[in-house]
Design a protein around this nucleic acid. Structure first.
Lengths: 169, 169
DNA sequence: GTCGTTTGGTTATAAGATAACATCAGTGCG
DNA sequence: CGCACTGATGTTATCTTATAACCAAACGAC
């Protein structure tokens, strides 16, 4: 149950299904593109998907070191470069961290909602936000190539628990 | 300030006036808040305003080292912390760099247009963009505390010079 | 003046990322 | 098979960005 109504995955859910779906989508995308999703790259993607929160490169590295010899920073960053290049992973600039893409099948302009309390991140693909930004830029003669939109705040669960009576149970 | 019609400052303009205005505004804001804009902090702000492009911490540090003894990373980062805390400077997450705030007199949600060719950055304060983002987040039960919106692309000048007369994608 | 607070100096190190070169695995082909 | 070619990974070193911890100087209040 991946909570189809909300991009948040706070409550306990069948996370194994999330990971499996992400890996299957990655297999498909890479096969279609002729890109080689090697064991290493696949494992890095799986580690990134281990939680619905951004993963840091050196945390991934620690995991890899425990699993295989000779993992060093370039090992991780090269895998990340590949995954980002093929749209399987997004870089979160405000956290120097990485999160799996919800829908890697086609390019999109995403927005991220990042809970500053529990770290949960939700990916939106709000076309209206993307379009408004592009329109405002175009009105100034600016040609957009990439949008970085990262919104910090409190996710529904953490906001409800933060003592605000209007949100309390 | 120069070029009131566009947030871009590509063409030659009276940049000394930009810097003077920014420093005067900073003096005013700090006086009103009772914050101490020391010589060091003022100088760091001035260095950040030296161009309409983001300044990196270690570049500022190099400048300071040449001007005064005993400048070290904490010297710069503490000044930056102060300037950011008082809304005089914005951090650009996607560049690990810092840019002067166009209007430090009150808090706002800004958006940045960053030219990937010449490095020029323009700060927008588009209330509609900010409001739409907040609305979309609120619809999901997310309480926004900070928006990071950094748009990469080509500024009007660099786009015009990029050899594509039709501006087609 | 002197007390307490803020600011800045100093040293060391943590965290994030890349450069450069070596080696290994797969593939095509004679 | 043996070789060359290519892409992927291993390896070492280094670079960039940022912070921790502690000390000394400057400032403002009284």
């Amino acid at each position: 149950m991946a909570d189809a109504g909300s991009p948040f995955h706070e409550a306990p859910h069948d996370h194994h299904a999330c990971v499996a779906a992400a890996l299957a989508a990655a297999d498909l995308v890479c096969r279609q593109k002729g890109a080689r999703l090697t064991a290493l790259r696949r494992r890095v993607l799986e580690l990134i998907w281990s939680r619905h929160a951004p993963a840091r490169a050196y945390d991934i590295l620690e995991q890899l070191k425990g699993e295989r010899g000779g993992a060093a920073p370039p090992t991780v960053y090269r895998a990340l470069d590949f995954l980002i290049e093929h749209g399987l992973v997004h870089r979160i600039e405000s956290l120097n961290a990485f999160v799996g893409c919800n829908d890697p099948r086609y390019g999109h302009s995403a927005q991220f909602l990042i809970c500053r309390r529990c770290g949960t991140i939700a990916e939106l693909e709000d076309a209206e936000v993307a379009r408004l930004v592009r329109a405002r830029a175009a009105a100034l003669g600016f040609r957009v190539s990439h949008q970085t939109i990262e919104i910090a705040g409190l996710c529904p669960g953490c906001d409800a628990g933060s003592g605000d009576p209007t949100h309390a149970a």
